[in-house]
Design a protein around this nucleic acid. Structure first.
Length: 429
RNA sequence: GGAGAGGUGGCUGAGUGGCCGAUAGCAACGGUUUGCUAAACCGUCGUACCGGGUAAACUGGUACCGGGGGUUCGAAUCCCCCCCUCUCCGCCA
């Protein structure tokens, strides 16, 4: 969330930044609640001061054996006033907090103007979409014909949108996870963590999934827990309500499955692996000092790009416009892979700098060089998302005779296997 | 799931109604001393919010001893509910 003091003191600036998002935000109600809260707090605290002094006095008098009944009655009356005011303060706190939680982050000044995805800017492209000399198949066709994927049986147990990988398909999925984690750990300086795949509402609020995205998550009422939509949630919340005393920056990476209800997207991209309710992902999360967070964003993107470059895939990097960046982000780059079977670019990574937005919600702070406490900056990026990566590998690697040539970098993780051939992969279920 | 024990500042650990925002030790930070690493000694050493002050330094106040309620003139301390940790039992990959 945003700093209430910032909104209070630089309202116009905040309003202008939020308007760039196209978000209708009601700062007036917020500022009113803030003002009222402060007035109440000042009032109730001065009453508490009086009560404390009077109670102390009573204690002293009692020690010397004097009668304090009259004083006690008087203090009790103050207590009643305090209780009433405390109640109001609590109400204002709740109101202010709930308003504050609904306000998105301010886009950084380097974020391009724009209303929608159409206004995003291509920052760079790596490789170029190669025209295939034959009519490319989709990954769904390839996956089913090679026995790598089984959508039908998976749907029978869990419904549409829950894919199943089979035989070498399952192995390739696992190999890619392993490859990416190794790369980030050994070459990019990340520490691997393996976290819970469910989180409570406090954690979800901390990273910004709640309250706005509740409908997009799988929820387990019995335990009051949510399935994570991304490892960003558990990994960022590792330091929830802490003042980090260890040296910064901290780089963490994690594999996790991701669960998304994709509410409101029924009927869109329902075939294959493009939009699914469950997919695997390797996530990168950074905790950094505020002064460095924009440099850190660039290296974060570079780390994600490195995965794709080593796999020899064609991709482009987009700087999202102010109208398209996510709720919690101040700046965001998307990376999209070229998928010839779809004849489309597929988002496989989203790298964001949240500045102190998540840190403020989650209470993640650090000690500055002057030994003051301040909110840290958090960043995260996919490094990268698996289902769509699988799409790109299958569709780009396909040959005229229906085989798949695997990227060189993944061969060691596949036990030396270079090609997926029709018939060869054939674990028939 | 059942029974018991416990949750106090970065850590260890005192504190069972007012003299406690909290003893002590360790760690950390600043300094003194010593020929270095080290040690010794002195000092500093929680966070949030409200107010004063220049959005600094500093300063007045309020709150916080797992979380939430309650009793009381007054709660870390008493009562209730919840969460978590540990031990034993049960169940189980």
């Amino acid at each position: 969330m945003l700093d209430i003091k910032l909104i209070r003191e630089r309202e116009a600036e905040v309003r202008m930044a939020l308007e760039r998002r196209g978000a209708a935000t009601n700062l007036e109600a917020l500022l009113q609640a803030d003002q009222k809260r402060r007035r109440l707090v000042t009032e109730v605290e001065s009453l508490k001061r009086r009560r404390n002094a009077a109670s102390e006095e009573i204690g002293k008098l009692k020690k010397t054996g004097q009668d304090t009944a009259a004083r006690q009655v008087a203090v009790k009356a103050i207590g009643a006033q305090i209780a009433a005011l405390d109640d109001q303060v609590q109400q204002m706190d709740r109101k202010l907090n709930s308003l504050l939680l609904m306000i998105p982050n301010m886009p950084h000044k380097s974020v391009p103007d724009g209303k929608s995805a159409a206004d995003n800017q291509v920052v760079r492209t790596f490789g170029e979409p190669k025209p295939l000399v034959f009519k490319p198949k989709t990954h769904a066709e390839l996956g089913e014909s090679l026995g790598l994927l089984d959508f039908g049986r998976a749907a029978r147990m869990a419904g549409a949108g829950f894919p199943m990988y089979v035989g070498l398909g399952a192995r390739l999925e696992r190999a890619l996870v392993q490859f990416m984690l190794d790369l980030h750990v050994k070459e990019h300086g990340y520490t691997e963590v393996s976290t819970p795949f469910v989180c409570n509402s406090a954690a979800m609020t901390g990273t910004g999934q709640l309250p706005k995205m509740a409908e997009d998550m799988y929820y387990i009422p019995t335990d009051d827990l949510y399935l994570i939509p991304t490892a960003e949630v558990p990994v960022t919340n590792i330091y929830r309500e802490e003042i980090i005393e260890r040296p910064l920056p901290i780089y963490l990476t994690a594999y996790s499955p991701c669960f998304r209800r994709e509410a409101g997207s029924a009927g869109r991209e329902t075939r294959g692996l493009i939009r699914v309710h469950q997919f695997d992902k390797v996530e990168m999360v950074k905790f950094v000092e505020p002064e460095t967070s924009y440099q850190e964003l660039e290296t974060l993107v570079a780390n994600a790009e490195d995965v794709l470059q080593r796999l020899g895939l064609t991709y482009r990097v987009l700087a999202l416009c102010a109208g398209d960046i996510s709720f919690a982000a101040a700046k965001c780059y998307d990376i999209e892979l070229w998928a010839p079977g779809q004849a489309a670019w597929l988002e496989v990574s989203s790298c964001s700098n949240f500045e102190s937005f998540q840190a403020r919600r989650a209470g993640i702070r650090y000690r500055t060089k002057a030994r003051k406490v301040d909110y840290i900056h958090t960043l995260n990026g996919s490094g990268v998302a698996l289902a769509r990566l699988m799409v790109a590998i299958l569709e780009n690697g396909q040959t005229a005779d229906g085989a798949i040539i695997l990227p060189e970098a993944i061969v060691p993780y596949m036990g030396g296997l270079r090609r997926l051939e029709p018939g060869q992969t054939g674990t028939k279920l």
